[in-house]
Simulated assay, not measured.
Amino acid sequence: MRLIQMKFPRLSKGQKLIAEYILKHYDKAAFMTAAKLGVTVGVSESTVVRFANELGFSGYPTLQKALQELIKTKLTSVQRIEISSDYISEDNALKSVLKADMENIRATLEKINNNAFDDVVKAIFNAKRIYIIGLRSSQTLAEFLGFYLNLILDNVRVVSTGVSDIFEQLLRVGEGDVVIGIGFPRYSIRTIEALKFVKSKNAEVVAITDSLLSPLASYADHTLIAQSNMASFVDSLVAPLSVINALIVAVGMREKEKIYETFKALEGIWEEYHVYTYNPKDKNME
């Protein structure tokens, strides 16, 4: 925003109209195409592109991404609803959301660091104890990761809100332990405080978040990036869940024999206590 203010005197008349709109409505402009922004302001799409170039960006998409990074941690749920109504309607909700999630996975595939991923898998196996914390909407991800890791390992604990405070649950964290923190915009302050606390106790910290600029990443020894951009009141957790799936599979591949015996025992228990639907014909196929 400061860059726009600095460049403003040298902009053309049409570019100044764009600048004024962005300064006043940056939350909406961040999710408009160049054509949509041009129509809204009353200038051509090419003027919008030249405006982005004048600011020093390689193109409008780069400017748009910078605006999105600027605002994504500041938007309230009400503002998200207002923005999403500009390009999502009842008629196109399914297609728009699926396309956005596909883009998040594609971007995650490009951004995530394979070496960091391998380091996290190693850290999990070397850990004395593993703590997983994700609050608010990220709690679903934490529970999912905890559920499957608990089937593979016997030293996993999911830190959750409830009767005891999260700091009480992390009281005995120390050197040799791994704490996995999960958080996406809008970041939970409690999660950030928890990672700061365990870092002071010399635990190894893993952050699963959307950017290396994320406040969770500042306390992490290892950071796994998963994109979650979504101009809606609902957080997009498809890409983060995909990364967590990959993490579970990678851990499981190292413990194939143990997992086989675990699930063999569980299948017997599930069948005996009718945990899942059971088809007697399945027995005949064995």
Rank of each mutant, 00 (worst) to 15 (best):
V205R: 05
I83K: 04
F57W: 03
A142T: 11
T47Q: 10
A231W: 02
M32Q: 07
E90K: 13
E54V: 01
M253F: 10
S236A: 14
L94K: 14
G252L: 07
N126P: 01
L212H: 12
L98T: 06
F125W: 03
T191K: 10
I269L: 12
L237H: 02
A93C: 09
M230F: 14
I182T: 02
L37K: 01
T223I: 06
S84Y: 04
K281P: 09
A239S: 06
Y148T: 02
I22N: 04
I182R: 06
K16H: 01
F51N: 06
I88L: 07
D101V: 06
R10Y: 09
V158S: 02
Y187W: 13
S85M: 10
H25K: 10
A246M: 15
L55I: 05
L63M: 10
V158K: 06
L17I: 08
Q139G: 14
T76K: 12
L63P: 13
L195T: 07
L63T: 10
D154S: 13
A107K: 14
N115I: 14
R157H: 12
G38S: 06
Q79A: 00
N155K: 15
F167G: 05
T62A: 14
P9C: 03
Q227M: 14
N284Q: 00
A231M: 05
I130Y: 03
G56M: 04
E168A: 11
R80Y: 11
Y273Q: 07
K28T: 08
T277A: 15
A265T: 08
F233H: 11
K128G: 04
N114T: 11
E257R: 15
E69G: 02
E103T: 13
P215Q: 01
G162A: 02
S85C: 01
K283G: 04
S218I: 11
N113K: 03
L195R: 02
P185Q: 08
R254T: 01
L3C: 00
G38W: 08
G162R: 00
A107F: 10
R157G: 02
Y260K: 15
A116K: 13
I269G: 00
F147R: 14
L94T: 05
V173W: 08
D119H: 01
I81L: 12
R129D: 13
R172D: 11
P61E: 02
I189C: 02
L135W: 07
E110W: 04
R80C: 10
Y219K: 05
R157W: 00
N92T: 04
I18T: 11
R50K: 11
V206I: 11
D119M: 02
K111F: 09
G183Q: 03
Q169D: 03
Q64C: 12
K196N: 11
Q139W: 14
D165Q: 01
E54M: 05
